[in-house]
Write a protein that binds this DNA or RNA. Structure first.
Length: 283
DNA sequence: ATGGGGGCCTGCCGGC
DNA sequence: TGCCGGCAGGCCCCCA
């Protein structure tokens, strides 16, 4: 579910109630998500102070004063929401626990952060902060799309010789880290590139044009608080609203947004995932 | 070695 | 009302 903008939105919501605060109580309500939780996770977290809440791709990373870093992935359906924030002006009770509330963090400041994930494709792990980037899930990631290492020359080189459709190449987290199905579809529309084209057979200037398009769509989505389809919530429970700005995602059969185009948005399936595009504007 | 498909889970929606 | 198929924002892993 959550792609980079949604994870960044969650991070921004959690940081004010987590950073600088001690994890006073941690409830772990089942043995695993996608994988087993690390050994003694609750004990290792309890009493630790969160120094910083970072994001790498779609992962949240909480650096602790214990020398460990908590890694969190929201999978497809994961949510993290805050309740009872004593740091803010308004105090309210914690809501009743709900189905699929798998991990609950109570901060010393009074905030409760609840991790809820019906499909359990999410994950948590603990590793030494010093070697966090060597974690098996992080070491394979390509550059951050909003960072300096992601630039025209990089993407041109990364696509060279690639026999896979550009849609699949952009979903490859080893090429660029953080894009998912929605933002790949949207970035390809903005670039006028057909998702069906082989990545290695696109002229360099057109590959280069993807870089600002990707950056722009991600930045706008972050500014809108992410996209809420079925269940994404910001940390304060509010909906994101970037879904209203989609040009193609989920718009099969609807008219293309390009003025005067008049074409109908199509849906095709590429390596098991829906791709939405305008066959006239995207070549 | 690269690329495609299966599988992991639950929930929801539409059709019959 | 209920059952069934299809679909979902991710990603590891196996196989060709």
């Amino acid at each position: 579910m959550p792609e980079l903008p949604e994870v960044e939105t969650v991070r921004r919501g959690l940081a004010p109630v987590m950073e600088g605060q001690v994890l006073e109580k941690v409830a772990v309500n089942r043995p695993d998500l996608r994988w087993p939780f690390p050994d003694r996770m609750a004990e290792r977290l309890t009493g630790a102070r969160v120094l910083q809440l970072r994001r790498r791709s779609k992962y949240l990373l909480g650096d602790l004063d214990s020398g460990e870093t908590l890694l969190i992935h929201l999978g497809m359906s994961g949510r993290m929401t805050v309740s009872g924030d004593r740091l803010g002006r308004f105090v309210h009770d914690h809501p009743m626990p709900e189905k699929h509330d798998h991990v609950v963090f109570d901060m010393e400041g009074g905030a409760r952060i609840t991790f809820n994930d019906p499909r359990r494709f999410g994950a948590m792990d603990l590793m030494p902060t010093a070697t966090a980037e060597a974690h098996r899930l992080l070491s394979v990631l390509g550059p951050e799309p909003l960072g300096n290492d992601f630039h025209e020359g990089y993407l041109i080189a990364a696509f060279r010789g690639k026999n896979t459709p550009v849609k699949s190449a952009l979903l490859d987290q080893g090429i660029v880290a953080g894009l998912g199905n929605i933002y790949v579809c949207e970035a390809l529309f903005r670039t006028g590139l057909s998702p069906l084209r082989k990545a290695g057979r696109i002229a360099a200037p057109r590959v280069a044009a993807l870089v600002p398009a990707i950056r722009d769509v991600l930045e706008r989505a972050i500014a809108a608080g992410g996209s809420s389809l079925k269940d994404f919530r910001q940390a304060d429970g509010e909906l994101g609203y970037f879904q209203h700005a989609f040009d193609v995602y989920g718009r099969e059969g609807a008219p293309c947004h390009t003025p005067g185009c008049g074409e109908t948005i199509r849906r095709v399936v590429q390596s098991g995932r829906s791709t939405f595009y305008c066959p006239t504007c995207q070549r």
